[in-house]
Design a protein around this nucleic acid. Structure first.
Lengths: 246, 246
DNA sequence: AAATTATGTGTTTATTTTACACAGTCAACC
DNA sequence: GGTTGACTGTGTAAAATAAACACATAATTT
């Protein structure tokens, strides 16, 4: 059952050479990044899409993506796309999933790494000059080009799950926000109605909100207090053990 | 601010051509799969590692991996690795993260997609003929070759989180198992001590365990009842909403 | 000033989690 | 065959959390 050591060494050497040649020449694939860029506006969760370049998919929308350059890290590439398309540097970005089915792209084998990013629409609204790019309500996104619908769906599901265990959702709001805005955000992302009082209690009990002693302005009703999220405190105190629960 | 339509069309056409050529020739990278294969034995969580092929990393251990073939889906490739190394077809497998730093691999640009798989050690133990492959206790895994330590660490953390919200951990046990075995598993994965009575209550209340009306055999003490996990019931009844909690 | 619309605050009840104790059964040993 | 060791199996009380629910207050609009 056990092979002699010599055989192993020979195997190892052979394997080494094969790896080297394969890395250097054949067996390569094109690699792309696709960004699912979420925004929050008019109490709706939205996603930034662009019209497809390819004739076959004309009039279909696609995610914002690009090929990864040889000297570019994946995250760097994703940040480039964001910078280029939204003008924003400082955005929340997280890798979600890699899609690599052989026939997923009509132009040949292209493996794509999907990133989710959350941006504050107000901060960048005026920076989109390309009128082939638009914000779409997530609920109305259908029939994207390529397999982008599938990618979008999985990123949206990912967000719905992730937002319950991590404060990334706050990246969609301005730095200062009212509790109502925060609740609207969660209701939009999760597509549920929440009890205002329990929501408030829950967030206050987590104790990561800092009262700014300011109030909303230009609202057609009583202005709410404004808060900011204390990310440092969150990092120090975040839950490690959530408990077994399927 | 808005460009004329003609400019856009020209841009689109140009962009299309660039995409085509880039996909077909340059800007390609080698793509690999690395599998973090977990097993559970002697009440310890273990991971399957192989000795590095490369001289530079001799005597270092690495994850089991391989380059993705041009006509191979990512998951297919991962299953191939598992079949080849463990002889098992029917294993739990999930993609975790893609690592693509430019300099992560000494042989050139290699982007690797990490998969986590969980296997039942008893089922395959005798099928590993390669004596350069060994099971390692996860707590003692250090200094793997390449960036494999980083990959392993993130997969281990992923498992610790995932096992609390999904029953994938049960793939590490035989089909029939006692509650003690199940608890040992969770204690090993999460590296905690749990209260036996509360653990039992929790699992029974989820109501996915089916009493087999059988008992453990060959244990030097009172045999415990054996259960199996009802995956279908789980799929029907699993939690959708876990609640906001950081 | 009256009406409208949100904000802001508790309380009560139900559910879930935690902490904790004792009786029962099998195997091994003497 | 009785005693011991080791683990199985159950229950309950207290604490913490989540869910359901109501009213007074403060701006804005009309």
């Amino acid at each position: 059952m056990a092979e002699p050591l010599k055989d192993h060494l020979q195997k190892s050497i052979k394997s080494f050479k094969v790896v080297q040649s394969e890395v250097q020449s054949i067996n390569r694939v094109a690699l792309s990044i696709d960004c699912v860029i979420f925004g929050f506006d008019e109490n709706k969760l939205k996603v930034l899409l662009i019209r497809s370049d390819l004739e076959k998919y004309q009039n279909k929308w696609t995610l914002l993506g690009d090929l990864v350059k040889p000297n570019e890290d994946l995250e760097t590439s994703a940040y480039h796309i964001l910078k280029q398309r939204t003008g924003l540097n400082d955005v929340y970005l997280e890798q979600v999933h890699t899609f690599g089915e052989v026939c997923r792209h009509p132009g040949g084998r292209v493996v794509t790494v999907a990133y989710c990013s959350l941006i504050n629409i107000q901060h960048h609204r005026l920076k989109i000059h390309d009128n082939e790019i638009h914000w779409h309500e997530v609920e109305k996104v259908t029939e994207l080009a390529f397999d982008h619908q599938k990618i979008f769906d999985s990123c949206y599901k990912w967000l719905q799950k992730r937002v319950q265990e991590h404060p990334l959702g706050l990246s969609l709001l301005p730095n200062k926000f009212s509790l109502r805005e925060l609740q609207n955000l969660y209701e939009a992302i999760l597509n549920v109605k929440l009890d205002r009082r329990n929501f408030r209690k829950k967030f206050f009990s987590m104790d990561f909100l800092v009262d700014m002693n300011e109030h909303e302005q230009n609202v057609p009703h009583r202005p709410g207090r404004l808060y900011k999220f204390d990310y440092e405190k969150y990092e120090r105190n975040k839950k490690k053990w959530s408990g077994i629960d399927f």
